[in-house]
Design a protein around this nucleic acid. Structure first.
Lengths: 226, 226, 226, 226
DNA sequence: CATGAATGAGGGTTCATTCAT
DNA sequence: CATGAATGAACCCTCATTCAT
């Protein structure tokens, strides 16, 4: 007994670690498969068959990770939201004020969609929940809105309206990406217009929108790859 | 007799007329049932069962009118679009310039959604196609955009962007209606902000947005009723 | 009064006659539509829609003439059988003995199918009942079999077997017509072989099969037209 | 170990084997259910409900094996054809010449139908495709025809006609089985008549038809059972 | 944990038949 | 008699979910 189970006391043994890694890998495979499937078929589509085929796992395995396809969608949406933040926020945080941050965020997110159209398609097809599941809409953007209003940069009368004035155009921009109408210039003009809608005057809005922002760069293991 | 029925070669007999009336009535029942169902379940939902229950007709009758639920959705979307136009455009056409027209249109359409939330829900749940199937997005709004740009009222650099800057916020406004966040004031502020985004300066945008527009009134047999 | 209703006393007045004629015309339209539909889709197909479209009458009218689609099929089959008889039997009856009659009948019926492939298709698609509904199989052919057996021309041991030896090859011949394999020569060889199967020796069978038979001619208002 | 599993890169594990066995079993259940249903209702009938009830499996399971009822029918027809061959051909191959083989085949197949009337009903109801889906009509019978013609036993002028002269009567024989008209004697007389139709003279045809053929015996797991 | 066959509820669709006009 | 809209039973098929291995 003593010999056969020597490290029994340590709770996290080698096997546990390996298992955890494998779990994480399989989960990633499923999520990566899922984003493309949702991007093509929408949130409510019959999806599991396609997801498991893309991920190369069995039906049963799917249910070891997600209980329903709705749960899967929400997880994907959360990851998407977080990944947008992790890509865009570092650049945004280098800006000096909320107007610059917002312009930077808008331009960057459209750039991101231009590079990875799957993102645009996922949001467009996924409907309202595709963006509302993560911190992007609940934390990051409200932060900038509050900050800009507090600083007197935005004269829009309430936060929720500001939110709508930002996300409405963003969703349309994603459609523009899908239809091939979007471009760097489109992104800049959109950013300018959104700033104007929040009360920034045209001249200064233009200045903010055309600043030199760092390029977005997608990290190695990103959900958006392929 | 000679005068009233001069070349009645193929007499449209009584039965034919009665049949045509019945068809029109049943079609209206189906469309009216359908708008509510789509408003609750979205464009791609399995809908036929619910539609026929709402409309109070049999399964088979459905297929005498629509071959697929997609076809049904497009018909409803077209009718919705046309009905919005027929309600809002008369008021809009009383405005003197494109900015006033746009403000009026935005305020009126939000008012309409406030009175008939089924409209907001239909558009919100129905996704992109819910508004793109009729003349509203293809004819009426582009007309105002062109007119405003030609008159130098809007300085936005291209028509499609203007379109996105209008419809993005409108869709969000419909969500606001659904969530109970919208109000007359919300509508006015939204209109102002959209004008600003198109390049109208804040002061004049405010003036346009708060003009006195005639109330929307829903005609008797409207699709939006109950 | 005297002028307007002169023959009122006669029970079969003008209107009755006209009505009867119209009935017969509509019935013929339906039967003519039906044979083609059954020929394409088989006895059990969903047929009424197609039949009434071909016949150019309404759904309701159909039910004034036939209660079920099975009844329709049987009527068509009966008419087909009778029409084959009315076309072929006159020629057959000019032959001197049963062997000649049978050869003549076989050659003629294949010729008929070659001219009007709809007949071949109707029988082939319609299945067993397509030929068993009329006098052809119940009266005309058994008559020849009996006659030939009585005369010692056929040595086959029983009538039903003889029947099978005739109709089996005929059905296959109709398939041959449909597949484009049949020809005058095919018909002659088939007739010879069937006679042989009934016990006629090869030399005489050949003689019977290649006699000079009058051509089949399809009467004006035939069901097989168009 | 090193020797027994040298490059077992993708080990066929236990689960895979068990799954494969289950698949084969279920497939057999479905085919066995199907033959009876087709035998009663024909090839084009709406059949799936009945098949799954007979087989005792669920709706969904059916679609794991066959996509349409047409596909099912073809599979059944193929299996039926192959099973006829596997039962009859061993006996036929013991005969010395094509005439004996054909006689033997005809007698055996009628005997088989007498023992398992489901076969007769399947072919009769199933229509032309019931026999044309397998090797019986494409390989085995043509082989005998060619052989007999080459040997000068059959004087019929072409192979396809010979085929029609064999299968027409066989189909009628199956009907005779269904109607209770068939018997051992019927089978012998039919065989004799078919040989005659192919050009064998009556005396020799009789000899061939009444030879002593081994009985047909149905193997254990046959499709025809119950 | 992974597998994949089996499940069956939940939808879609057709078409013979009825019936008010 | 003719018409054709309405009916609903009877099919068809999919797909999320379960479970024995």
């Amino acid at each position: 007994m003593l010999f056969t189970m020597p490290d029994q006391t340590k709770p996290i043994d080698h096997r546990t670690l390996v298992a955890a890694e494998r779990r994480e890998k399989t989960r990633a495979k499923l999520l990566r498969g899922a984003i493309h499937v949702f991007a093509q078929h929408g949130a409510e589509a019959s999806v599991i068959e396609l997801v498991i085929r893309q991920a190369g796992v069995s039906r049963g395995t799917f249910y070891n990770y997600f209980r329903t396809n709705e749960e899967l969608f929400l997880e994907v949406a959360r990851e998407v939201s977080n990944e947008i933040i992790s890509i865009v926020d570092p650049i945004v945080l280098r800006q000096q004020d909320a107007a610059a941050s917002l312009a930077c965020g808008l331009v960057s997110v459209v750039r991101l969609a231009l590079i990875k159209p799957v993102l645009a398609r996922f949001v467009s097809k996924g409907g309202p929940d595709a963006l509302s599941a993560g911190n992007l809409t609940t934390t990051v953007v409200p932060r900038e809105i509050k900050s800009g209003m507090a600083a007197g940069l935005f004269t829009v009368p309430d936060e929720r309206l500001a939110f709508d004035l930002i996300f409405g155009p963003v969703i349309m921009a994603f459609n523009a990406v899908i239809n091939g109408r979007a471009s760097e210039e489109y992104a800049r003009n959109l950013a300018q217009a959104v700033l104007q809608s929040l009360g920034v005057d045209a001249g200064r809005a233009r200045g903010y929108a055309w600043r030199d922002f760092d390029e977005v760069s997608i990290p190695a293991g990103s959900l958006f790859h392929c």
